[in-house]
Computed example of a mutant assay.
Amino acid sequence: MIRPERIRIANAQENVGESDNILSGEVISISFVGGMTRVAVRTENGLAVTAKMMSERAESRLDLGVRVRLCWATSDMVVLDQ
């Protein structure tokens, strides 16, 4: 499991540097919740992943259907027993 606020959202062409984990996908939902924005992304393998980010000014917001990459550090992941 990874907490949604630990996932960084990068545009498809952005250099993500030395990120440990990267998934590519398409923005399928955007919800503004106060100062936070929840972004749901459908990855290339069909998985839906939700990320949270600080709400930004209108000119830098994401749009539905935009291709993005989700990045996070391995140290931010927690394995849950079933």
Rank of each mutant, 00 (worst) to 15 (best):
Glu44Cys: 06
Asp63Ala: 11
Met54Thr: 14
Arg38Lys: 08
Val39Leu: 06
Asn21Gln: 09
Glu44Tyr: 04
Ile9Asn: 06
Ala10Lys: 03
Val79Gln: 12
Ala58Asp: 01
Ser29Phe: 09
Ser24Arg: 15
Ala10Thr: 00
Ser19Arg: 13
Met1Ala: 14
Ile7Met: 08
Trp72Leu: 01
Asn21Val: 14
Ile7Thr: 09
Thr37Trp: 06
Cys71Met: 02
Ala48Cys: 07
Val49Ile: 14
Lys52Ala: 10
Ser60His: 14
Trp72Ile: 02
Ala48Pro: 02
Val41Asp: 04
Ser60Gln: 12
Ser31Asp: 10
Glu56Trp: 00
Ser29Glu: 15
Ile7Val: 12
Thr74Leu: 05
Val16Phe: 05
Ala12Val: 10
Asn45Pro: 00
Glu5Pro: 08
Pro4Asp: 03
Ser31Arg: 11
Ala73Phe: 00
Ser24Met: 09
Asp81Gly: 13
Gly17Ala: 10
Arg67Glu: 04
Asn21Ser: 06
Asn15Thr: 04
Ala12Pro: 01
Ala12Gly: 02
Gly35Asn: 15
Pro4Leu: 03
Thr74Cys: 03
Gly34Thr: 05
Asn11His: 10
Lys52Trp: 09
Asn21Thr: 14
Arg6Ala: 15
Leu62Pro: 09
Arg38Ile: 07
Val66Ser: 09
Ala51His: 08
Gly17Cys: 12
Glu26Val: 15
Met36Arg: 03
Ala40Lys: 06
Ile2Phe: 09
Ile2Gly: 13
Ile28His: 01
Val66His: 05
Asp76Ala: 15
Gly46Arg: 11
Arg57Glu: 12
Asp63Ser: 11
Glu5Val: 11
Arg3Ser: 15
Ala51Thr: 09
Glu18His: 07
Asn45Ala: 04
Asp81Glu: 15
Val27Glu: 06
Gly25Pro: 09
Arg67Asp: 04
Met54Gly: 07
Thr43Phe: 07
Ser31Gln: 13
Met1Lys: 10
Glu14Leu: 00
Arg3Cys: 08
Asn45Cys: 02
Ser19Asp: 12
Ser24Ile: 06
Ser29Val: 06
Thr50Asn: 03
Gly17Val: 11
Met1Asn: 11
Val79Gly: 08
Ile28Met: 03
